[in-house]
């Protein structure tokens, strides 16, 4: 049955909120252009680590032999590239860090999967899912300390990563 009464929230809701009644505006200010931003540096390092993990996984014969899995991993990898591009947009990493490798000065949150490559696809997928979940969880502190716009972006990235973990592990909503 098609119920059509007052189309309040289901269609076309989500207007941008006004600041007037916001529950407390964040005191954090955006980092000025050209200044180091440890929050962005950490987020970029995490994305770089995840991309490396997907590259390592996609290079495994067991993954390469599974076309469906390979396609899924390539799609998720591309989403991490989108994350990195969005996080890095308009941001110039500190001069001490070469822009071509902006992540080298920040240790990754955990050892790259490439150091101990799991060989079977099932283990690889489980390891990737855990890395996604860990990356999502690790963002929370920075999301709480950074400016409003960066917080919203990083929250979306963290939510995407939790979604990747769910997609990799399967299951029902």
């Amino acid at each position: 049955m098609l119920l059509t009464v007052t189309g309040v929230a289901l269609v076309g809701a989500c207007a941008a909120p006004s600041d007037k009644t916001s529950p407390g505006s964040s005191p954090a200010k955006p980092v000025p252009a050209g200044q180091p931003d440890p929050v962005r540096d950490r987020a970029l390092a995490a994305e770089s680590d995840l991309i490396a993990r997907y590259d390592a996984a996609l290079a495994l014969p067991s993954v390469g032999a599974d076309a469906v899995l390979s396609a899924k991993l390539r799609t998720i990898r591309a989403e991490h590239s989108s994350h990195a591009a969005a996080i890095g947009a308009g941001y110039t990493p500190p001069p001490s860090t070469p822009s071509s490798t902006p992540l080298s000065s920040t240790p990754p949150p955990s050892p790259p999967a490439a150091t101990v490559p799991p060989v079977d696809a099932k283990t690889t997928v489980a390891t990737l899912a855990k890395a996604e979940q860990d990356a999502a969880s690790a963002r929370t502190t920075d999301i709480l300390s950074t400016d409003a716009a960066t917080a919203m972006l990083l929250a979306s990235v963290a939510a995407s990563e939790a979604g990747h973990a769910a997609l990799l592990l399967g299951g029902t909503a």
């Binding site: 529950p23 407390g24 709480l144 409003a148 963290a158 939510a159």
Partner: peptide, 24 residues
């Protein structure tokens, strides 16, 4: 996502959790 942007502290934390839930 809008709640995250418009809040801080525990409310922002909850906004992140609920955004994540919705995404999953």
């Amino acid at each position: 996502a809008d709640v995250v942007q418009a809040s801080d502290g525990d409310v922002r934390r909850t906004g992140v959790e609920w955004l994540t839930d919705a995404a999953v």
